[in-house]
Structure formats: structure tokens, C-alpha cells
Design a protein around this nucleic acid. Structure first.
Length: 308
DNA sequence: AGCCAGGTTTGGC
DNA sequence: GCCAAACATGGC
């Protein structure tokens, strides 16, 4: 069981330009690099030695695991928001409760301790996964950085310059041509148009309070958002923990082990029914195992590829 | 060099 | 409804 988190907030050495505090959270069970850098839930955090740095919710943060606990350098007002962002309040033992008889899930839980599913702001997840379609992780990452440098706020943390993700209005104003020039490819139009719709009142921040089906139907109205991207935004950006994004990897793993013979759309639907509020969280564990090649039974991605 | 990438859209049955 | 092809771009 996880202990209740009681952030012990104390003023730290203020090396930066703004008010910077260090918060220590004892017993925070999170693998920072795995969750923020290697898990492909977001693409805007980076390793700095044994620390991880990034920007979200308008604030920069530096995170590091130490024997005393998770050390977080951020402005004092944002510490609680980061706890939520990192999903530290959730008991991940409960996510895998009852999986003792399931070799795959219990193996996933054992092999990936400290993997958490983020609670990003909806726009952050939307932008990231608009860029993700038919794209690879390293290029998504470089595109997110390019967009942030060009259209995001410049921030400073511990002497390092960091860039916030661009706001919708900045990308709507930038327009398709400029986004294409940055390397977004055919996604430039999707991003410019979706950003404009968000500026013009698309209820992005209300999706968290709508039932899953309604929130998903809303997202599917946005250009460049299909079933997979919608589920990523719902899971990583709207707190819909039952949302079950199905990419090629998750499709393989699910049809091989749980739902043989089903189409991609049916897999998403049936997995939610199967695992309920834990579906999306479990999906993230299985996705990571599959993507990192930890499941030798699954074929590598190949067009027209055959199944075992 | 060619295949692939956390897909979506469009147009054909 | 389900299927195939087109879509930009760079990493490997």
C-alpha cells in the first residue's frame, strides 16, 4: 500500500531568477525517466543527469529521486499541481489487484514499477498526439521542441532555459504554412485548424467532466483526431482512465492474449468493458512492454505482416 | 536505400 | 461498415 502523501514544503536555495522552492515527497513511487521520458505519453521532458526537467501548466519543474524521496524544484504554488500531474495520489497496487492469475498483467506490473499515467492538461495531450499520427517518437519529440521554441513561452529554471508548449492561440495565429515549415508535414493543417477550433470555443476543458462516450464524440470532431488520438487525449489529458488507445502494438498484444480475432475498433471497445476504470492504465503498461520488445511472442511491425 | 513510425482522411464497394 | 491508398518527414 502506498502512504498518504504529505508534501513537506520548505524554501530551497533560490538559484533561479524566480521564486523557486524544493518540495520533498517521501515514498513517492514513481520512475521519473520511465514515466516522463521513455513511455511516450508526453514528449516534452528531458533527462538532466539523474534528474528530469520540463514545463507544464505554465511552470518549469526539475524532479529527482533521492533516498529522502522525490525532490521537486518548482515554484511553491505549483507543487500540488505537479503531484496531480504525476498521478502520485493513485494507488497503483489497486490497478493490478486481482491480476494474480493473469501472467501478462502481473508480469507487466512487476517489470515496470513506477510507471505512472500522467494527468496532462487536455491541450498538452491533444497537441502531442496530433503530432503523433504515423510518426515516430523521436521525431514527435523534436517537433514538440521546435514548436515550443518558436511559439511557446521562454522560462528559466536553475539557470537553464526551458520552453513551454505553445498555447492554442499561438498556433492558430501561426497558421498551416508556418507549421509546415517547421516540419509538421501534413499534420500542420490538422494542428492549425484544431487550435483554431479550441480558440473558438471547443470545450476542451470540459471533457474531463463529460461521460467517456460524449467526451470522445466531441474530440472526434477535431481535424486530425481519430479513435486512437481521441483515446490518448482522454486518457493522458482528461482523466478518463478507462480510455483505451489501440495502436498496432496494443492491437497485437490484445488479440494475441485477450481478444482474438477482433478489429482495432472492437478491441478498444471490449477492453474498456473488460477492465473498466483500469483499462487505460493497464494499456500503458502493456504498450510499453510491447513497444520495447519485452514480449518475444509478438511480431515486429511490418506492413502486410503476418501474425504468430 | 527503403521501411517504419503510439493514424487520419478520403474515396471506393 | 470495412478496405486501401495517400499523406510529409526524418530516424534508423
Amino acid at each position: 500500500m502506498q502512504k498518504l502523501i504529505s508534501p513537506d514544503i520548505s524554501p530551497g536555495s533560490s538559484t533561479g531568477t524566480c521564486f523557486e522552492f524544493e518540495t520533498v515527497i517521501p515514498d513517492a513511487r514513481i520512475d521519473l525517466a520511465l514515466t516522463l521520458v521513455d513511455s511516450a505519453q508526453c514528449f516534452h521532458f528531458a533527462r538532466r543527469g539523474d534528474a528530469v526537467v520540463g514545463v507544464s501548466m505554465g511552470s518549469p519543474v526539475r524532479l529527482r529521486q533521492t533516498p529522502e524521496g522525490l525532490r521537486m524544484s518548482a515554484d511553491a504554488a505549483s507543487a500540488a499541481r505537479w503531484v496531480r500531474y504525476l498521478d502520485l495520489e493513485r494507488d497503483y497496487d489497486a490497478v493490478f489487484e486481482g491480476c494474480e492469475g493473469d501472467p501478462l498483467l502481473s508480469d507487466a506490473a512487476r517489470r515496470l514499477p513506477g510507471l505512472r499515467v500522467l494527468n496532462q492538461p487536455p491541450w498538452e495531450a491533444l497537441l502531442a498526439f496530433l503530432l503523433s499520427s504515423n510518426n515516430n517518437v523521436s521525431r514527435i519529440r523534436s517537433l514538440v521542441l521546435a514548436l515550443s521554441r518558436a511559439y511557446g513561452a521562454t522560462l528559466e529554471l536553475g539557470g537553464e532555459t526551458l520552453y513551454a508548449l505553445p498555447e492554442p492561440v499561438a498556433l492558430a495565429r501561426a497558421g498551416e504554412a508556418a507549421l509546415r515549415a517547421l516540419g509538421c508535414g501534413y499534420r500542420a493543417a490538422y494542428i492549425a485548424r484544431s487550435a483554431r477550433m479550441v480558440c473558438e470555443g471547443f470545450p476542451l476543458d470540459e471533457l474531463a467532466f463529460l461521460p467517456y462516450e460524449e467526451a470522445r464524440a466531441q474530440l472526434l470532431r477535431l481535424p486530425g483526431v481519430g479513435p486512437k488520438v481521441a483515446d490518448c487525449v482522454l486518457l493522458f489529458g482528461c482523466g478518463h482512465s478507462s480510455a483505451f488507445p489501440v495502436d498496432v502494438w496494443v492491437e497485437r498484444i490484445m488479440t494475441a492474449y485477450y481478444l482474438p480475432g477482433l478489429s482495432r475498433a472492437r478491441v478498444a471497445e471490449r477492453a474498456r468493458a473488460l477492465w473498466g476504470p483500469y483499462a487505460g492504465l493497464r494499456q500503458q503498461y502493456l504498450f510499453h512492454l510491447a513497444r520495447t520488445g519485452a514480449l518475444p511472442g509478438l511480431q515486429t511491425a511490418r506492413k502486410g505482416g503476418e501474425r504468430a
